[in-house]
Amino acid sequence: MTYEFLVASAIGVLVAGGIFLALRARTFQVVLGLTLLSYAVNLFLFASGRLVLNRPPIWDKAVTEYTDPLPQALVLTAIVITFGMTAFVVILALRSFLESGSDHVDGDTVTGDAQDSLASDDTHGERP
């Protein structure tokens, strides 16, 4: 087994999990899905510099071979921005829950999920 296979398959698994969760009906699950997708995207971007062992891009007179620093710089800011985005979405979800009493991504009454919404009302009983 090679590292390349491990990384590529991990990206694939994260994407699959991310897509599935992003399509769920609850805000929290959508946030989880976005988090998984972000891991996958960041890993993918990073991998575009290819996998290199023990050659960090710290310049030294004695070293001639380094890994590509550019994807790393891009991914570094991407990780921080991912946090900003996740935080914003989480707070948006929280606020919309507080405003509407439902943490359903499409509000309470979306066709196809009618049963779910009814069930959630039973639990929380907070229809405004």
Binding site: V15, G17, I19, F20, R24, T27, Q29, G112
Partner: peptide, 30 residues
């Protein structure tokens, strides 16, 4: 502050459809 244990969510057909799309997407991106 958010609800912790929401009940079972989507209906089965919807889960299968999303699951199929997720697997196709994962295999492709991987």
């Amino acid at each position: 502050l958010l609800p912790k244990d929401p009940p079972l969510l989507s209906a089965a057909p919807r889960k299968w459809r999303d699951g199929a799309l997720a697997i196709v997407g994962g295999v492709l991106i991987g």
